[in-house]
């Protein structure tokens, strides 16, 4: 069922920009069109391109936002989220948590 929703209706998660759009829904209460526009503006692309895997993959790779394939020296997890903070202009609470754990 979850897979069917993902394929039929979902943004595509990290394959595309689904995680970024969903993050703006959570972080700023943005409805779907506003969240898509916000992310598209930040990436300087057309909102229609947000779910185009081939196109977005290169952007994610270039910006260090995390890609779904196993690519050495390509950030995933925490470092990718820190890059997402910069691109989207937001603070992610667990990134802040780990920064606070670093010794000065």
């Amino acid at each position: 069922m979850a897979v069917a929703h993902g394929l039929c209706s979902g943004m595509g998660g990290m394959r595309t920009t689904g995680d970024l759009v969903c993050r703006m829904q959570f972080a700023k209460n943005m409805k779907i069109d506003a969240a898509k526009k916000y992310v598209a503006d930040k990436l300087e692309i057309d909102p229609f391109q947000l779910t185009e895997e081939n196109f977005i993959r290169d952007i994610r790779d270039k910006e260090g936002l995390g890609v779904v394939t196993g690519q050495p020296n390509s950030p995933k997890g925490l470092p990718a989220k820190m890059n997402i903070e910069k691109v989207l202009g937001i603070t992610i609470s667990n990134c802040e948590h780990y920064r606070n754990q670093l010794k000065k």
Partner: peptide, 10 residues
């Protein structure tokens, strides 16, 4: 798996 294979957004 949900993140990298099953296309979930959160």
């Amino acid at each position: 798996v949900y993140e990298r294979s099953l296309t979930f957004d959160s």
